[in-house]
Design a protein around this nucleic acid. Structure first.
Length: 215
DNA sequence: AAGTCTCCCAACCGCCTCCCA
DNA sequence: GTGGGAGGCGGTTGGGAGACT
């Protein structure tokens, strides 16, 4: 059995009170961030260090933006998620004033549903079989997919799709099958030519970081 | 108006990685 | 080289607020 991160006996759990917030802010203003495990001792807060860090990072930090996500932020999250998957901290790092928790929550509650509603598998960023078939048919007949036209979550270059086979860019998703989990996370990013094969750990300065700079 | 349901988001949990002795 | 401690991360949960019946 793994040792808990800190002694939870006598620790508060759940929502933070304004007094607790104030004590934590006072401490960080005086001593700066870090040494989270010292904070309960130093301040008398009945919170474990990890909880203090989380509260600061997700809620108390002065540079947090808060409020609704702008359209361009949504767009960027979708693109970055297609590129990086559930690496919320990396995604949040590209969104000034946003936290990984905020981005993750927003994705789970809004964006994944939004993508699903237009027939895109939010996990793999691929069209559903049904929509993919319609798209390919409509391209073949010279029509445009009404679903994509009305609901595309971010700009799709239809000419670019037409210039090659649509299936080169948009693979129908086997939603729920769990197959192809590990490949082609860039299927909605035809313009980025993303190669995730080299992206196992993503330290800064990797090829993926370079490609992210294109965004 | 009261009860139930649904959704959102803050917070927790446990695993992973990094760093240092 | 390695073991342990601390921080970081992503998945998950639970409570509260609003919507619905």
């Amino acid at each position: 059995m793994r040792k808990p991160c800190c002694d939870k006996e006598g620790m508060n759990k759940g929502s933070w009170s304004p007094q607790e917030d104030q004590e934590l802010m006072d401490y960080i203003q005086k001593h700066g961030e870090g040494h989270w495990r010292n904070i309960p001792k130093a301040t008398g807060l009945l919170r474990c260090g990890k909880s203090c860090r989380l509260r600061w990072v997700n809620y108390l930090r002065p540079d947090l933006k808060r409020g609704n996500f702008a359209e361009d932020e949504e767009d960027l999250i979708i693109r970055l998620h297609a590129l990086l998957g559930n690496r919320w901290s990396l995604i949040a790092g590209r969104l000034p004033g946003r936290t990984d928790n905020e981005v993750k929550n927003y994705w789970n509650s809004h964006l994944s549903k939004k993508l699903a509603s237009v027939g895109i598998d939010p996990k793999h960023h691929r069209l559903s079989h049904h929509l993919a078939r319609n798209l390919i048919n409509s391209i073949a007949t010279g029509e445009t997919s009404s679903a994509l036209e009305h609901h595309q979550p971010f700009p799709l270059d239809h000419d670019q799709i037409k210039s090659s086979s649509a299936s080169d860019h948009y693979q129908a998703s086997d939603a729920g099958d769990g197959i192809n989990d590990d490949d082609d996370s860039s299927s909605l990013l035809p313009d980025l030519n993303v190669d995730m094969a080299s992206d196992s750990s993503l330290p800064s300065g990797t090829a993926t970081e370079d490609k992210m700079s294109l965004l």
